[in-house]
Nucleic acid binder design. Sequence first.
DNA 1: CGTCTATTTGAATGTACTCAAAAGCGGTGG
DNA 2: CCACCGCTTTTGAGTACATTCAAATAGACG
Lengths: 188, 188
Amino acid sequence: MYDLILRNFAMHILIHEDEQRYVLAGLQHRNVKKNEVLLQADEICRNVYFVNQGCLRLFHTDREGQDHNILFCPEGWWAADMASFSAQKPAFFSISALEDTEVLYFNFNVLERLYLEIPKLERFFRILSQNGFSLFQRRLTSSHSQTAEERYARFQRLYPALERRIAQKHIASYLGITPVFLSVIRNK
Amino acid sequence: MYDLILRNFAMHILIHEDEQRYVLAGLQHRNVKKNEVLLQADEICRNVYFVNQGCLRLFHTDREGQDHNILFCPEGWWAADMASFSAQKPAFFSISALEDTEVLYFNFNVLERLYLEIPKLERFFRILSQNGFSLFQRRLTSSHSQTAEERYARFQRLYPALERRIAQKHIASYLGITPVFLSVIRNK
DNA sequence: CGTCTATTTGAATGTACTCAAAAGCGGTGG
DNA sequence: CCACCGCTTTTGAGTACATTCAAATAGACG
């Protein structure tokens, strides 16, 4: 159960066995059914979720009721509305499950405590946030400098597994285009 | 000289006077002339810059030689290609000055050392990165759900000071549209 | 099997772009 | 102080990329 998350930690920090046990003891566990909502916009994001199995999506619902996916979180990814979690204020984004999903998660207070007790964990989330920061800077650049067709090709190249796993309408939303237009692009 | 940066630290962490002196001792200082390049894409980003006065821009130059601004950094903002800085690998973005600018900066090795000696500093940059992360998630959402005119209105609302200070072509690039089209939008 | 949702296809429309030319503006040197 | 040069902004015409609307088809799930 903790295999994937330990390897995830190990990508950025070196963590001793006793610290490991301590960190894992702070984790909670939950199974989420397809289409179940883990975080509703305007509520406070009280947890950061690690996806052990399945896939989540992070999205915003606009005034017209249209969803805009901004991130897919399959196995090994972390999901949260970081601004909401960090400041414990209402969320802009929502999180829901694209498949039956198994998550591990830290509650806000637990993580704040762990930051103080195990500074390496703070380092881990600093690096994670920096990577996310960079990822979205590049996504925005891509959105500004490339056509929908080029962005779709990029998505296929970067996430070949997701492309087969996720419904077209969700990929279209992620790319910032309509499902209709993605269908046109695909059939070329 | 250190007034602005100390207030910046104080926004997220509480830092004692002796720690303060220690952190400030790690800072370097530099004056940059308008249009001077602080970081060239493909080089390694060796510093994180804090803008004391003036304004920087973070941008990507695509294959056709077109610039795409993704961030303006006036007084009180931090500038770096975080992916490049963090991993000390070639940068995707460049940084240059929109005005004569005064920066303070941490070199990579110095900051890594400070992270270990003063964990609070690592907390500071974690929070900074999380905020940046969220900022760009929302920018991408805005780019996917709003028209150019709405995004321009949003920019004016969020950064009224910058709107008067920065050339139209740079604002257009930031919004992901052509200067020609921004001119059309403005004259309505 | 039937219902509901997702995808495909085509036509008409809209948003933003390219190209081109003119006008404005800022700095520099005579 | 004015004249000139280069760069930025404006304006208009034609075009391309992506959308909306609508109807038909395909797929998923109880």
